[in-house]
Design a protein around this nucleic acid. Structure first.
Length: 268
DNA sequence: AGATAATGTACAT
DNA sequence: TGTACCTTATCTT
């Protein structure tokens, strides 16, 4: 479930398990064999996330991982088992192991190449000290919809389809509003809500966006389970009643992704 | 067992 | 705008 919060957790987990110690690196599947050999036995100096990109520093080599849509990381304690399925990258030390499957990117970068990745990414609500001003500059000048802009990693790094749908619902903003029609106040509210929601997501390891007053219990409705691990207002709830106003949640394809929103609650 | 969809990106057209 | 990537969970048969 890779939106930005997952990648920041992965940086933390990699650092906790492997940081400051030599690590054995291999590619059981073989597709990353050459890169793995270059960092095998070296010390993991640093683990860092920017948006959905993970960077693991081994001296002058930076291991760059992007999970894409299907990539998964699996951690375990103790001896690693025989690799199951296509394990692109395996890292092992005396404490445990990590297996990476199905990533879009698993490659070694030079410091200059790493800097180039950072340069093409917008501010990340989860990176300490980052502000939304740079994103606002682009949004306030753009005729694209706010829904498209929130998912554009050049504008803002780390937001995916779930956070996009949920933050717009929470602020009552129509996903179809052009960016240039947003007020600075509205943008500041979006940024602040993303900072809060995504930090919660890092802590919890899932995306929960429903305010206490809107839970099914608080609304006097039967309990509900979302099928993707978190409690949300509109993401993948199309045709189901809105948790607030009971209008059916709508969906539409926008730039090859599903957009979800409540036509009654999101008219601003 | 087979089909389908998915929280993402890059490239071709 | 389409499609390739490449994996898994959740349907449908």
């Amino acid at each position: 479930m890779p939106e930005g919060h997952v990648i920041h957790r992965l940086a933390r987990e990699n650092d906790a398990l492997f940081g400051g110690r030599p690590v054995r690196v291999s590619s059981p599947q073989g597709r990353f064999a050459e890169g793995a050999a270059l960092i095998d036995g070296r010390v993991l100096d640093e683990a860092e996330a920017h948006g959905k990109h993970l960077f693991l520093g081994f001296g002058e080599h930076w291991l760059h991982v992007h999970l894409g849509l299907y990539g998964t990381y699996g951690f375990g304690a103790g001896e690693p088992p025989e690799p199951v399925g296509q394990v692109r990258l395996r890292m092992v030390n005396d404490s445990g192991y990590a297996d990476l499957r199905g990533p879009t990117a698993c490659e070694l970068l030079t410091p200059a190449e790493k800097a180039a990745v950072h340069r093409r990414l917008g501010p990340d609500p989860l990176r300490p000290g980052e502000a939304g001003d740079e994103a606002w500059r682009r949004i306030s000048r753009s005729g694209s919809t706010v829904a498209a802009l929130l998912m554009d990693q050049k504008v803002l790094a780390g937001v995916g389809n779930v956070y996009r749908a949920e933050v717009l619902f929470r602020l009552g903003i129509s996903p179809h509003r052009p960016g240039r029609d947003l007020s600075r106040t509205e943008w500041d509210a979006i940024w602040a809500d993303l900072v809060a929601l995504m930090h919660d997501g890092v802590a919890a390891g899932r995306i929960d966006t429903v305010r206490p007053e809107h839970t099914p219990e608080a609304m006097g409705r039967p309990p509900r389970v979302d099928d993707h691990g978190g409690e949300v207002y509109v993401y993948r709830r199309h045709d189901q009643p809105c948790l607030v106003c009971e209008t059916p949640v709508r969906t539409e394809e926008l730039a090859a992704r599903n957009l979800f929103w409540c036509p009654r609650c999101q008219q601003r």
